[in-house]
Structures are given as C-alpha cells and as structure tokens.
Design a protein around this nucleic acid. Structure first.
Lengths: 402, 402
DNA sequence: ACTCCTTTGTTCACTCGTGAAGTTACTGTA
DNA sequence: TACAGTAACTTCACGAGTGAACAAAGGAGT
C-alpha cells in the first residue's frame, strides 16, 4: 500500500467525491458529469470495487435503454472539518461527505488578541479529537480576507487585523490533517455549487449581507479569485457621493451604507430604536409595521439592488443567491431591492432569478468544509500539495471496514 | 496525409501558435509557457522539424547553463482575417500570425438593411480572394452583441438590430474557411492578452469608451463570457439617479451619461459647441483650453472612474487597459477619472496600473482576427469544431514551400 | 413474438503526456 | 586548467485517457 500511494490517480478521487456529493449514480451519469469517457469510468469503477471503496446498488428503471446500474460509496463515514473565523467568534462544524452538518460548535474568539492563533489551533484540534467519524479528509477555513498563495499558509485580513499569519502551517502541524484556507464568501459559493442552489449552474453569484457585504463569483464553473485573491469585494462599490466614510477610507461605499452597524446607526439617530438597541430591535420594528424602520431597510435594499445590478450586468450570471445574517430580514430589504434592481439590468437579464436562502449560522463553516470536499474536482490542481494529500486520504482511507 | 489528419494533435498547433505570437523561442521556454513537460516539447519539436513546419535558429547566449537552441516558424506567411461589424461600417483586416496588420479595408455598411448579411459576406469574400498570403487560418468576427453557442452560428445584437442572424454559417459556406464570432470587446481583450499590454497578466480588464462603453474581462488567463455571452456590459452599470434615459430603458446608465453622443448633446445644450458640431469639435475645444469643454470630459471621467472602480473592486484585476475611440482624448477624461477612481478602490488596489493605449481604428478588427490566432491555446476546446479546423489548417498547410 | 431503437456498460488498441534519470554545453571560480 | 554549478535538452518506461466497435438489457410499435 505504501508503494502504490505514489500514484495519486486524480479521477479515482473525483469519482468518490462525486458519489459523495451527488449520491449514488450510474457509470454513464458519472462519465457525463465529470466529462470523461465511459470507458474510463468502467475501468475506475472496477478498481474501486476491487478495493471495496464503492459498492454496486440496485438497477434503476430503464428509460428506453439498458437500465443503469447504480454505484455508491461503500462507507459514508467520511467527512471534513469546516471553520469560520470571525473577529469575535469561531464556528466549527463537522460535515459528512454528503454535505450534511453533523456537529456544530461555536466559541468566543478575539481575533486581535496576541494568542488568537494558539486559541484557534487548540479549538480546532479539540473538535478533530472529539470527532467520531472514521475518516477526516481535512480542515477547511473560511476567513474574511484573502490568502496569499492559494492553499498555502499566510493569511491577510483587515477585518481580523491579521497580516501574514501562518494559520495553515500551524493548523496542519497541530492536527496532522490537510488544511485549505480561503475567503469565506468564496467558500460559501463553493458550497452552493456543490450542495446548494448553484448546483448545475456554471455562472452564478453569491451575495452576502450582514455585518459586511461580499460576493462569491462562480464563472464557467469555477470560483473567480482575482489577481490577489480580493475578487468579490463588492462592499466597496461606490454607490453614493455623500454617505458615511467607510473604514477603507473612501466615501460612498456600499458596505458603509448598508451593513448592519450602519442601519442601526441610522435608525438610532432617527429615533426609530433606542440608543442601545441593535439590529434585532430594528428588524422587529420593521416586521411589526413601523414605516420608519421599513424605510431604513428599503433604502438599504435600493442601494444594494443598484449595486448588484451593476455586478450582474458586468458578469452575466444565471442566478443570484442572497445569503448572510441579513438575509433573515430579506422581506424588508426586498421592498427597496426589487424596484431598484430589475430596471437597472440590461433587458436580457431582467428575468434573472434571485434566490434568498434561509439563513443558518453554521452555513459559513459548512462552506469552509467544502473547500476540502471539492478538491477532488479541481482539475487544475489549484489546491496544490494539500489537494494531493486530500485525494490520497480519500482513495486510501475511505474503504469499508474490513 | 488524409489518414493522419484524424489526429489533431492539439499541442503541435499550440507550439506553432506560440512561436507565431511570441516569436522564436527555446524548447525550454515553450514548455514553461505552455505548461507542459520539456520532454513533450522535445518530441513535438522533432516532429515539426521533420515536417518542415519549424526551423532551428541560432543559439541564444547562455545565462549560466547550456545555451538555448531557438526554434522558429519555417514560414511566417500565415495569417487570419479579422472583421469588425459596426452599425454603419465594416472594417476588415488581414493579420500575420505575429499579429501585425498587413492590410486594412473599411466600407460603409448598413446593418439594418435587409441585404446586410449578403453585403457582409460579399465584402469579406473579396478580402479573402485578394489576399496574397499563402495560408489563411480563418475568419474572426467581432460584433457588438452576443453569440449563441460560442463558435457556432447565430448572432444577437441590439446595436445592430440583429436577432439570430446565421452569420457564421453564411461566411463559412461562402469562403470555405473556419469562422469564429464573438463579442467585439472580448475579442479586443484576447488581442491584448496575445500581443498587447495584457501579455503575461492572468487577470486584467479592458475597458472601451467611445460610441458605447464596454469591458472585456480576462480572469485566470481566460475570457469571462458569462451565462449568455453578455458579460462585460459595464455600460449599464447604474451611476446616477437622474440622468438621461438609456436605450436599454433604464435611467442613470453609465453609457447613457458618457458615450460620445451624450457628451456632444451636453456640450451643444451648454453652448460649448455649435448645434451641428460633433465630438471632434468638442475635443478641439477641450484641448485648446476651453474650461466648459474640459468640464464635460472631466464629468464623464468622474462617472467612468467610479464605475470602473466598482468593477476593479469586484474582479481584482492586475491592470486596467483603456481603449476605444474616446481614448484619444484621454488627457481630458483623466482630469475627472483619476480623482474619482483611485480613492474609490479598496486600499490594496489603489496602486493599480491604468494603461491607456493609443488608438488605431483597425484595432477592433485585429482583435477579431485574434479569435482565430488564439484557438490553438484553447485547451478546453470552447471553440469546438471550428477550432479543430483551424488547428488542422495550421498543422497541415503551414509548412515551408517545398 | 418480432424488429427497431435507445441507452448502458465493456473491451481493446492506441496516443498523449509525464517523471525520473541521464546527457550536453555553457559560465564562473579556485 | 580543472572543477563545480546551472540550465537546456534527450531518452525511456509507464500511466492515464480516448475512440471505435461491440455486447447487454430494456422499451415501443407492429
């Protein structure tokens, strides 16, 4: 076994990952989805069967031809760890290879503390240790910021106040698992394309609203990261000529105008909520029918709508997915969003579908875990050495108990 | 030969195209640029030498190791035709495989005429017939609009008033050459990445100003086209809440505010130029120092700067290239552009390079020709059957005269 | 029951491309 | 002048993946 581990056999891993994310499938279906020849899938399936990594299931009813022989994973006891790093808390999840979250854990965290890195490593290590799953493929981390050298170590994030923090190598040496780190919204987009609404769409946009504003861009089936990993920073699209000064230094940024903190400030100074009330109180007011509260959201919706329209015109996605803490109060946003958004699109795009997803807090962390689960599909090998390790774990340790 | 033509040998074509676009190079350099192994280049070079498609040139001086043996194309008498289709005129060029324009021809054209298609086909056929070049790889066409099914036939363009015009098949059957059609700005971006400033950059933005406003997006080395081929329509980013009604039906579109026609209208109603003067007169006024004319351009520059800043924040390109008829008067635009653009960027991007290219009118058509010249590099085979034909022509007909 | 059609899955010969190891031909240094 | 260092190129054995042809297993119409 030690000798044969040199050959990584990328497509073996891809087949396993496909069966995990998609569920049982026929050889023909796998070949079509992974865009390889049926001949290859036959060969791979034979090998994987011999290694007891997959099993043959029932035949599915024929649709005018030979009925398909479904194959599925021999063991679903495979998964990954996902970590969301926020300025004030950590969320860690364990997910199965089918994307389902099986364990959630949230802890307070102070990103600006000098012990932040050590605290994070300890917390993640504990989650790894506590896991009952037989095989963990790796640890995915989503951060509000960018990563130098995709899949490599150092992390930069203005929101966290981190510059060149060697998060990757620290986690890796502590847990002995492969580690991938990426921007949190990009990770979310990845999750949508594997398990969510983005499935089957080659071009879509994930936009998030909440404590910040961001976008994950999927084009031609893969994530757009940009030259320095900063793609998707739609929070700093200029939308007004006045408005508050953003912490990026500019005036009129989308984010400065519509992030939660800003909505709260507007509402407080207008006397809609008390000087110590937060976004929750504002939402309650709006839902209860207070027109001044509703106007705060509607105004944010209008600005957001115009900005997103610009992005849609520029990138031509097939659908737009709205996510984030703020999505919970979308009905309030929508009053301003829809009338601002649609008319500002080019005519061909005015019918574009906008999907608002119910928000669960663990979604970010689940997205981070998808960094791991999606590597086997990464033809270009962007994930480099870590990706290699993940594929190796998948094709080696994922067999049925013998 | 007929038998061996079944194997297309994609990388043979890629090597030839690389030598054409890049100039003579060593095997090692080719391997690095095309991201293949040196072993493969050795093998391919041997074959191509045997077929007399390439020749060995001088050794280049060593830089501390074995000196590189340069190889170059046996014949540079290879080229392509590029066609720019505008509402009122056609520009056709012949370019060499090195990207140089060797022949230009412009004709009046009425896109809305019922005979438009026939006229276009005749004009292009004549250029093909007149060509003295021994091998034409194909015909590239750039249109202001989108193409259904990349590399296939039918064309949609609101600017031309065309819906599902079978331009591709018409040109192909008339000339018996491979034909590729694409959006004109995307084609321009392709030209920049092959022969221009974009060379060596994996992420850049080409923005054009003039009778319209558009963008070509290159990300991770390839053109972003979007779900329905409409990516890059930055002309309809909303930038003002008032402003003239755009012909897309919306109010406040970038294009409606800053296209030439709009600048002229503003200048006329302000009395800066006479009621029958055009953009040329306005530029002369501005260059001569008329502050009112300068303000028209500066205002356009401001709007443009803010919009482009939003796009840069969203896509994180490495450089921005400004092109188009309007680029000739860039100094006038710049007065408004720079102070609006830089501060609106996220801090990491404030140093981004903006390159303004001197404008030649045949540039669009040259870009279109690059659709043909770039196909050998198209790994994914987006260009489909036509791409196949082009590669075949390149590896078959491109030999030295025997 | 028979034929035709459709779709799935398999076999086989073959090409493309690679990694590893070695060879060639220079520059720079003791 | 010998030696190490460096980079370009070559050879070779091997694996991954494919196209083409075929076999298998059903449905639908007659």
């Amino acid at each position: 076994m030690a000798l044969s581990s040199t050959r990584t056999n990328a497509s073996r891993a891809a087949v396993l990952a496909f069966l995990g994310t998609h569920g049982a499938a026929s050889r023909a279906e796998i070949a079509r989805s992974l865009e390889v020849s049926p001949a290859l899938v036959t060969k791979l399936a034979r090998e994987l069967l011999a290694d007891q990594l997959i099993i043959e299931l029932t035949h599915s009813p024929s649709r005018g031809g030979r009925p398909a022989q479904l194959i599925g994973l021999a063991s679903h006891d495979i998964g990954a760890i996902g970590v969301k790093v926020a300025p004030d808390h950590l969320t860690m999840v364990e997910v199965g290879i089918d994307g389902e979250v099986t364990h959630v854990e949230t802890r307070d965290f102070e990103a600006s503390s000098p012990h932040a890195l050590a605290t994070l490593v300890t917390a993640v290590s504990e989650v790894v240790k506590l896991s009952t799953r037989r095989t963990q493929l790796g640890i995915g981390v989503g951060i509000p910021g960018s990563v130098q050298e995709q899949s490599e170590h150092s992390v930069n994030s203005t929101q966290l106040g981190w510059t060149n923090v060697p998060l990757g190598s620290a986690l890796q040496s502590a847990t002995n698992l492969p580690v991938l780190i990426d921007n949190n919204v990009s990770a979310l987009a990845l999750a949508e394309s594997l398990y969510g609404t983005g499935r089957g769409h080659d071009h879509f946009l994930v936009v998030t609203i909440g404590s910040g504003v961001g976008a994950g861009i999927v084009s031609h089936g893969s994530i757009i990261r940009g030259h320095s990993g900063n793609a998707g920073e739609i929070g700093h699209i200029p939308v007004t000529t006045d408005g508050p000064v953003c912490n990026c230094g500019a005036t009129g940024c989308l984010e400065a105008a519509i992030k939660e903190e800003s909505l709260v400030r507007q509402a407080r100074s207008a006397g809609v909520i008390g000087p110590h009330d937060g976004i929750g109180a504002l939402e309650v007011r709006g839902a209860a029918g207070d027109p001044r509260a509703q106007e705060v959201f509607a105004n944010a919706g209008r600005l957001f709508g115009r900005a997103v329209a610009g992005v849609v015109n520029t990138l031509d996605p097939e659908i737009v997915i709205v996510l984030g803490e703020g999505a919970a109060s979308w009905p309030l946003w929508a009053a301003g969003f829809e009338p601002a958004f649609r008319p500002a699109l080019i005519p061909q795009k005015r019918g574009i579908q906008v999907v608002v997803e119910g928000w669960q807090d663990d979604r970010w962390a689940q997205g981070a875990a998808c960094l791991i689960l999606s590597t086997p599909f990464d033809d270009a090998g962007v994930s480099g050495k870590q990706g290699h390790l993940i594929r190796e774990r998948l094709t080696t340790h994922a067999g049925a108990p013998s």
